[in-house]
Simulated assay, not measured.
Amino acid sequence: MTNDLKDSFSGAGAGTGAGPGPGTGGDAPPAPAALAAKVRTLAPSMTRSMQRVAEAVAGDPAGCAALTVTGLAELTGTSEATVVRTSRLLGYPGYRDLRLALAGLAAQQESGRAPAVTADIAVDDPMADVVTKLAHDEQQTLADTAAALDTVQLGAAVAALAGARRVDIYGVGASGLVAQDLAQKLLRIGLVAHAHSDPHLAVTNAVQLRSGDVAIAISHSGSTGDIIEPLRVAFDHGATTVAITGRPDGPVSQYADHILTTSTARESELRPAAMSSRTSQLLVVDCLFIGVMQRTYESAAPALAASYEALAHRHSPRTR
């Protein structure tokens, strides 16, 4: 993504060209606890100058909260306009609102309720440190995703799934594994669900969808063409569409009736985005599954029990 294109996402109300999609927030600034998650999620799509501002506020919220907009611009080697644009991209009307959130985040970290950012995994880290750092990042990713997840959008997606005639789920790479996980969960409680990682099959199946069906796209970047195209086709044919993405302002959102935002740990050389995004995607998938189970319990519980019994019978010792 070029800097010019990145800058197009930095203004107030920036989106995909069709305006902000549902479930993207924007009505109220993020709570202090969600600020760090927003920085981690959005930093990769920012310009380098905006990243410097974001990294500064995430790394030293107390210090930055004490700075004026001019002071933060000087600290990061950027401009006041860049500081304001970064504030708006993070969900705050202006820098004053961001400073208030930074002060709140600093207070939480001081009290121990918000963990400080830890160092990335290094090539020469002992295995004990690798385990500790990975566990911290996984826990933080789950906490960030839970804090940012729009439960209204989640409830609407659950309602659509619970009454769906058919569910198609699109994902490639690591997201494809998450798509398969959701499909097999839904199948075990009696829903007709299929995961598609082949883009051609995904589109040809999407053509068959209609009102009463559900299509789910899973894409951390929100810009994977092989995922966007089948979701667009499903949207155009009247299906209810859901996007599970770490970039709610990405192109996938313009074809999504409901957007479920995921968070991710900081990407590093030894921990790529695909690896860290999978954790948050699986949390959202599990939330969808439990929600559907609750809504369809009378039919879902017997179906799940039957699947357990069938599997247990398959793996039991054969009798002569």
Rank of each mutant, 00 (worst) to 15 (best):
R85I: 01
Q153K: 06
L105I: 01
A65Y: 08
G163E: 12
R165V: 04
P230R: 05
A147E: 00
H194T: 14
D236I: 04
A239Q: 11
S280N: 01
E74C: 06
R52S: 11
K6E: 09
T68L: 05
I189E: 01
D226Y: 06
A234Q: 01
L304P: 03
S45P: 08
G246L: 11
R99A: 15
Q184G: 04
D181S: 10
A300K: 12
V192C: 00
G250R: 08
D129I: 00
H194G: 05
G291A: 04
A303Q: 11
V284F: 13
L191N: 06
A164P: 02
A103V: 03
R266I: 13
E138M: 10
Q180F: 02
A31K: 03
A310R: 15
L102M: 13
V233S: 08
G291L: 05
D7R: 15
L182S: 02
D27P: 10
L90E: 04
V130T: 08
A56L: 08
T241P: 07
A147D: 10
L149F: 06
G25N: 09
L105M: 03
A12C: 02
D120V: 07
L283T: 12
G26P: 07
Q140T: 11
L142G: 03
A62F: 03
C287K: 14
E80Q: 13
R295A: 15
V252K: 07
A36T: 02
L311W: 11
I169F: 02
S268P: 12
T82A: 15
P115N: 07
L72W: 00
R99Y: 05
A65R: 08
D60Q: 04
S211Y: 13
G112L: 00
D168L: 15
P61E: 01
L270F: 15
G250M: 05
M1K: 07
S268K: 08
L288Q: 00
T262W: 02
D97K: 12
A306Q: 13
P93S: 07
A156E: 09
E80W: 08
D97A: 12
M50S: 13
V214E: 11
A58T: 07
V152A: 12
S219M: 07
T151V: 13
V57N: 04
Q208G: 12
P199Y: 04
D120R: 06
P22R: 10
A174Y: 12
F235Y: 15
L72F: 06
D137W: 04
T68D: 12
S175P: 05
A305L: 14
T118F: 10
E267A: 14
L105A: 09
H196L: 10
A310P: 00
E110M: 04
L209N: 08
A101N: 05
L209A: 15
V69P: 00
V203M: 14
R113G: 00
S111M: 04
Y255E: 04
D125G: 07
